[in-house]
Simulated scan of single mutants.
Amino acid sequence: MKETESEELSSASPSCCPPGSHSAAPPAEAPGCQELEENRDMEIKQVTLHKRSGQKVGVLTAEVVSSCVSNLGRFGSGLHHLYHHLSLPSQDLSNVSVLSKYVHLEMLELPHNKIKDLSCVSHMPYLVTLDASHNEISSFFGFQPPMNLKEVNFSHNRITKMEDLSAYSSLCNLDLDYNSLSEITGLEQCFKLTRLSVAHNKISRISGLHSLPLTHLCLRGNQLERIEGLENLKCLQFLDLSLNRITSLSGLLNLHLLGSINLEKNMISEIQECKHIHDIFLLRDLNLVGNPVQDQPDYRLAVIFLLQHLTVLDQEKVTVEEKVSSVNQFDPPLDVVAARDHMTHLVYQLMQPQVLYDRCCSSMRPIWLIMLLRTNHAI
């Protein structure tokens, strides 16, 4: 009889509200509440044992959900309390269809599992944050769009193609690292997207970004050879293009809000390429570690001279002394030029042989003798 009552309470809470969470029935006053809680804990232990023994492996149950939800908050008129966050990392899950009953979730975290299907998210209209990283998902947003979905993490999955996301108008942060994407598409109508990361994919050409309000863009570890398709990203502040095959910086001319550029381990070989970003006055951090340009003579001082507003170059702080030295070397002021000329002439003069002729010595009288003769003559 007690087990039946426990099952009824568990099934009566599909809105992410485990037994005893409703304010209308305080658990402290319910008869036999302590016994029900003990029975529920016993059932959870049994589920865990079944999982270890090989039964129902990978299938998420309501009992497990009720033990993992958090962040209790009010809902509707304020008379009901519901749990809004669910985190199930590293649970070896492959089937999470039971989550379709938990319609009031706002944050769902399912990283490091074996999930292939996320259609249950279609029943979560209030979902704001979704973390499905490190799974086996191949379908791109294979669910109906929640109206307030803002952050999505699909990194370390098996996605091969991006599709139209115009229905996800609230999307602000999208992480697609470590997939198999060959191009960026479907983001044209995501007018709130500010952070996009597609690192370690197979992208060979930057496209599909148009006039998005991106402030952070990560294209690390792809197959890019040129910087293109960024000219309309007027809000871009942080750009990561490391671990590619880029040879020129010509595609960064009009990005006047850029403050950080990471070009580590590319193929930039000429210092003159820095002239393309000379007019980006907000640029403070530039990383060219692992590029052939570092082998050029006076590389660091030359880059600092071209980009006087830098504060960090190659992950090392730019000092005031380096800035002064770069100016003195490549465009010295007049007083420095005069000082150098004087030093050059002085050194050249000292290097010339000094000759003292004998006839000069024989005709010269000691100055004290001349002064004595003049004094006697006056007397």
Rank of each mutant, 00 (worst) to 15 (best):
T4M: 11
S6E: 10
E7H: 06
L9A: 11
L9Q: 13
S10Q: 09
A25I: 14
P27M: 00
C33P: 00
Q34V: 10
E35N: 10
L36T: 05
E43S: 09
Q55S: 13
K56Q: 14
V57R: 14
L60R: 03
V64Y: 02
V65F: 01
V69Y: 04
R74P: 00
G76A: 11
S77N: 15
H80Y: 08
Y83R: 05
Y83W: 01
Y83V: 01
H84L: 07
H84V: 05
H84A: 05
H84M: 04
V96L: 10
V98D: 03
L99P: 06
V103D: 06
H104T: 10
H104K: 12
M107R: 12
E109L: 13
K114C: 10
L118Y: 00
S119K: 07
S122K: 04
Y126E: 09
H134D: 01
S138I: 01
F140M: 05
G142F: 02
P146M: 07
K150F: 03
E151T: 11
E151W: 08
N153D: 15
N153G: 03
S155G: 12
N157H: 06
T160Y: 01
K161S: 06
M162T: 08
E163G: 03
A167L: 10
S169E: 12
S170H: 14
S170V: 02
D175P: 00
N179C: 05
S180T: 02
G186R: 12
C190E: 04
K192D: 09
T194H: 13
R195F: 04
S197V: 06
V198C: 14
A199I: 02
K202L: 08
K202C: 07
I203W: 01
R205H: 12
S207L: 08
G208N: 10
H210A: 10
L212V: 02
C218T: 11
G221M: 07
G221K: 06
Q223G: 00
L233H: 04
Q237G: 01
F238Y: 10
L239V: 00
N244C: 09
N244H: 04
I246T: 03
T247R: 14
N254I: 00
G259V: 00
S260A: 11
K265V: 07
K265T: 12
N266C: 06
N266Q: 04
I268E: 02
S269T: 02
L283R: 12
N287R: 09
L288E: 03
P292F: 01
V293N: 04
Q294Y: 01
D295R: 13
Q296Y: 03
Q296N: 15
Y299C: 10
V303A: 08
L307F: 07
Q308K: 06
T311S: 15
V312D: 12
V312H: 09
L313G: 09
D314P: 12
D314S: 11
D314Y: 08
K317D: 13
V318I: 10
T319S: 15
E322N: 11
V324W: 02
S326D: 08
N328C: 12
N328A: 12
N328T: 01
D331C: 14
P333K: 07
D335Y: 12
D335W: 07
V336E: 15
A338G: 05
A339K: 14
A339N: 11
R340E: 11
D341H: 07
H342M: 14
Q349N: 14
D358S: 06
S362K: 10
S363D: 14
L369S: 13
I370W: 04
M371I: 08
T375I: 06
A378N: 11
A378F: 09
